[in-house]
């Protein structure tokens, strides 16, 4: 067995073919997407619970740093989706193995073909936004806000490490975190199934929120909110979210159902992917247990938080508070 450092450096040094690089990219793009997923679910829940914070988060998403991140995110999601399909196909049609290299090349090609027009639309949103000489959040402010997430992650992992150490002392357990019984096989199956289900959902989501309307349109006053017939009069981010969640088709809040499905599938898929990576590289029992607990806790917490936000919705009081706070800050500024 090689050490963690050797494993990583040798993965880059071994002259595997396109399959090896597809796997490396699959991991990197998956991890990148999960990182944003966590921020995104927490931020969006603020639309229901802390509207003033939500406005700040959207302002940060409209800054150049996050615009770069948004392009990277879209690239990650598109590549991960296509390569995931390739892996799933080969899992179910092992006899097609001879086409795997060609399939990997097609994945790169398809990703590029999808990304070119997508980036074109996204760039047009960026150009529109900067054409109006916008107020930008400073990098210092972004670092200040986002560092709170980093502190949060570190705190959760530290807590998990302490709990895991205590558990190790009490139980004298020498093994890491092991899924009971046939759950490992079930999760393997879930990754393939959920991947296929997520594909149309996430492409729809990206299409609406990044291509048809970008993050800059969330604060666009007088714009009809994508996927609804409701106009965002105030140009406040919370009203945008409220419009989507309150849009009823035949009495059903379709975008809440859509978001709930996406939330559950993507969180479990993403966090199980994270668990897979952890179990590949964090083998020391204490650390392995701690990170796995953090993953289980994180997945449950995000699903609970997201569901709570979807059930709560953006209510009138929250919206009023948002308006008040914005007016207060606006008047304070002058």
């Amino acid at each position: 067995m090689a050490t963690l450092v050797t494993t990583v450096t040798e993965t880059l040094r071994y002259r595997g073919k396109i399959g090896q690089w597809s796997w490396v990219l699959h991991r990197v793009t998956g991890l990148g997407t999960v990182l944003f997923l966590v921020l995104h679910i927490i931020d969006t829940s603020w639309a229901a619970f802390y509207p003033d914070l939500y406005a700040e988060a959207i302002a940060e998403y409209q800054s150049p740093l996050f615009t770069l991140g948004e392009f990277a995110l879209i690239a990650c999601v598109v590549y991960h989706a296509f390569n995931g399909l390739r892996v799933t196909l080969l899992d179910y049609k092992p006899e097609w193995w001879a086409y795997q290299q060609r399939a990997a090349a097609i994945v790169f090609g398809a990703t590029t073909i999808v990304l070119i027009p997508t980036f074109g639309f996204m760039l047009s949103h960026v150009a529109d936004f900067y054409g109006e000489d916008p107020d930008l959040v400073s990098v210092g402010d972004i670092i200040e806000t986002q560092s709170q997430f980093v502190i949060g992650f570190v705190a959760i992992i530290a807590a998990a490490l302490i709990l895991s150490a205590l558990y190790g002392l009490v139980s004298r357990s020498r093994s890491g975190f092991v899924l009971p019984g046939r759950l490992e096989a079930a999760m393997w199956l879930f990754m393939r199934l959920s991947g296929v289900l997520i594909l149309p959902l996430v492409f729809g989501h990206l299409g609406m929120m990044h291509v048809i309307q970008g993050v800059f349109d969330i604060t666009g006053g007088g714009i009809e909110v994508v996927g609804t017939d409701i106009v965002n009069d105030s140009g406040k981010a919370v009203e945008f979210v409220g419009a989507r969640w309150d849009m009823l088709v035949a009495g059903v809040a379709i975008w809440r159902v859509y978001d709930a499905l996406l939330l559950a599938l993507v969180v479990i898929h993403g966090f199980n992917g994270l668990r897979t990576v952890i179990n590949d590289y964090a083998l020391q029992p204490l650390i392995n247990r701690a990170l796995n607990w953090a993953v289980v806790f994180g997945a449950i917490a995000l699903i609970v938080l997201g569901t709570a936000a979807l059930l709560e919705g953006v209510d009138e009081t929250a919206y009023d508070i948002a308006v008040d706070i914005n007016e207060t800050t606006a008047s304070a500024a002058y």
């Binding site: 399959g19 080969l90 092992p94 006899e95 193995w97």
Partner: peptide, 27 residues
Amino acid sequence: WRCRTIFNCTSACPREIEVTRAIAEVK
């Protein structure tokens, strides 16, 4: 389940065994 469908094994085999395919068939 630790197989990640990387295909390094298939290209390394000096006997040209379709290794990744065999693993998928066991799955």
